[in-house]
Design a binder for these strands. Structure first.
Length: 599
RNA sequence: GGCCCCGUGGUGUAGCGGUCUAACAUGCCACCCUGUCACGGUGGAGAUCGCGGGUUCAAAUCCCGCCGGGGUCGCCA
């Protein structure tokens, strides 16, 4: 090794020792006579002093040092002269007096700051990701990710799980997301698909008798990106035999509680994780992945609205819809523009419009002081003061608050108000950034009707086991079937989902038939699963957790790109490598591929 | 594909019809400086204001189109 110690580990205990260090020049301070550099490596920073009275040649070399030069220094760890200690550096009580120095490699001036946490345009960071990763924030994120994954592996190992790798080149299936395809050279005209998740493979491992499997698995989905989604991502994929759903939920709860208390001891985390039904979260939070760090629950105002003379309300109720609302505390004096923004958000989530009711202006106080001329709303003249007060009371509002009300079908109203609730929570900074509010959402419907195609589609995936008592409904009223499916949510993100699985060929075939497949199609696409289920498949279930999202939350970041070493951008391009890229005609020919002309 | 936001020296920002021959900070280069640590000081180089078109006597600034980036809806079993 070119180094005997890490820069960041030196302290008083090393006083008097001669050490060899190697790292990058974080900063240089040239006093003419005396030169200091902050030498940085993965573990931290230590000050190196170049004194011409100690070594003239070292001092001459130090004159040439610039940011990001790679250097090796040999010298003595000495106590800093009293009064010159730097309490902001962990190594700040000591410094290294250079006796020998060697420039291992110079560096061009970097295109952005390595030594400061100033925000830089993301595409520039991604183009020079290897420099971006040198920055303290990114280095901490990547190291945090390592600790998280290591903790998970150790924990599951102790729980009797075995890690098994599954193929990356598998088979395209018709369900789910768009597949990434890989052409076969050996089998002309045929394609592998990259796994969207190892779902079927892990179920086959259960049939194989592995009983407790997990994998830190890379998954691929060719869909549009988001802040929390990119084409390839990492899941903790896990499956167990002979379990009930609570066995899995409790295991995950223990894992996450231990993980957070070990790796992020300052974070607040509530246990046991609350369990909500799907209907419950949709009605109360308007989302199947609610942020539970703040209240502002959605309330049903239909009974009050039905009494009003407001057409928009009464018409919605007449059509078996709902009128519901959400509170915006202290925002009665919102401007026209601010209200328009909220209206637009509601419309973008399918609402016909948004009714706002401002209770007074900047003043605050109890509702009792509310008078008719203090109510500001397009609906004001259609509502009695009593009706406004009744709605305000239900939403637990006081003077100076703003009410957001939407009328329409139950689903649209919930989803639009859910989006507004999330937006308001963010604007008013209601969510404590130091809290991790985990929860489970259960009792999802098994199926959902695709309004465009008229076909039944799985809410989760076609292997989810229905509730036993709902099985007879399969061919009669599929919409009423509930699935043994559960999601894990945290702070407004879905960080995982799983289910108990169907383990008999008979039931599995019935589900596929309901999804619109003919028997020959089922045998062609899923025959391997059905056949496996006929050879003693144990009851089993599992879960998959998004590692990127989890680490993002633990790191307090806004996008998963901040916790992925080499992520893709919104256009699914890797800017470090410029992938995807064209290939040669020879490569295409070998793969039996002819590119289409497109206009 | 729709909607919203952004694009000004290397980096981060300001400027939002004329005083812009584009400002500030930092970085970079040169010189000075022996206890600094975001060292300090003096001087210097560095930008056809993303691209194209239009409006105007006059455009970084207003309008249109395109490109690039981000967020989001659709999509994501």
């Amino acid at each position: 090794m070119l180094k005997s110690h890490s820069c960041g580990e030196l302290n008083k205990e090393h006083l008097g020792q001669t050490v060899a260090l190697a790292g990058w020049v974080d900063r240089r301070r040239d006093h003419g006579g005396l030169i200091f550099i902050d030498l940085r490596d993965r573990e931290g920073i230590v000050q190196v002093a170049f004194n011409p009275e100690v070594s003239k040649s070292c001092h001459r070399v130090a004159n040439r040092l610039r940011s990001e030069y790679v250097v090796r220094v040999k010298g003595e760890v000495v106590k800093r002269p009293s009064g010159t200690e730097n309490p902001r550096l962990p190594t700040g009580e000591v410094e290294v007096t250079a006796h020998e120095v060697e420039i291992l490699n110079p560096s061009r001036t970097p295109p952005f700051y390595i030594n400061e946490e100033i925000e830089v345009e993301e595409n520039l960071r991604l183009r020079y990701r290897y420099l971006d990763l040198r920055r303290a924030g990114m280095r901490e994120n990547i190291m945090l990710r390592h600790r998280v994954v290591k903790f998970i592996r150790d924990f599951l190992d102790a729980e009797g799980f075995i890690e098994i790798e599954t193929p990356i080149l598998i088979k395209s299936t018709p369900e789910g997301a768009r597949d990434y395809l890989v052409p076969s050279r050996v089998q002309p005209g045929k394609f592998y698909a990259l796994p969207q998740s190892p779902q079927q493979l892990k179920q086959l491992l259960m049939v194989a008798g592995m009983e407790k499997y997990y994998q830190i698995a890379r998954c691929f989905r060719d869909e549009d990106t988001r802040a929390d989604r990119q084409p390839e991502f990492t899941q903790l994929d896990l499956e167990m035999s002979f379990v009930e759903d609570e066995d899995i939920l409790k295991l995950m709860e223990r894992l996450f509680t231990a993980l957070v208390t070990t790796i992020k001891p300052d974070a607040k985390i509530a246990t046991p994780f609350p369990r909500f039904s799907y209907d419950d979260v949709m009605n109360r939070f308007g989302s199947d992945k609610p942020d539970l760090r703040f209240g502002l629950e959605i309330k049903d105002l239909s009974d009050i609205a039905a009494q009003s003379a407001f057409d928009i309300f009464t018409a919605a109720i007449a059509e078996e819809g709902k009128v519901k609302g959400v509170l915006v505390p202290g925002c009665a004096s919102y401007s026209r523009k601010q209200l328009d923004d909220l209206n637009q958000l509601a419309r973008s989530h399918g609402a016909g419009g948004l009714i706002t009711i401002a209770l007074g202006g900047a003043e605050s106080g109890s509702l009792e002081k509310l008078t008719a001329d203090m109510v500001h709303s397009v609906a004001a003249k259609f509502l009695t003061l009593e009706q406004v007060k009744a709605m305000a009371e239900r939403l637990e509002a006081s003077l100076g608050d703003l009410l957001l009300i939407i009328a329409g079908t139950a689903r649209t109203v919930n989803e639009a108000l859910g989006a507004l609730r999330q937006e308001v929570g963010q604007r008013l900074k209601l969510a404590d950034p130091n809290t991790l509010a985990f929860a489970y959402v259960k009792n999802f419907p098994l199926l959902r009707k695709n309004e465009e195609t008229g076909r039944w589609e799985p809410e989760h995936h076609p292997f989810t086991r229905p509730w036993d008592e709902d099985e007879p409904l399969l061919e009669k009223t599929p919409e009423k079937m509930r699935g043994k499916h559960y999601d894990m949510v945290c702070n407004g993100f879905e960080i995982g989902g799983g289910s108990l699985r169907i383990h008999t060929a008979k039931l599995q075939r019935r589900v596929f038939r309901l999804l619109g497949y003919t028997d020959p199609q089922i045998d062609d696409r899923f025959g391997h699963m059905l056949e496996a289920f006929e050879y003693g498949a144990p009851p089993h279930g599992g879960i998959a957790l998004g590692i990127d999202r989890l680490v993002m939350l633990l790191a307090g970041r806004e996008t998963i790109r901040e916790v992925i070493a080499f992520p893709k951008n919104q256009s699914a391009v890797d800017l470090t490598f410029n992938a995807p890229a064209s290939v040669t005609e020879e490569q295409l020919a070998e793969l039996h591929i002819l590119l289409r002309e497109e206009e």
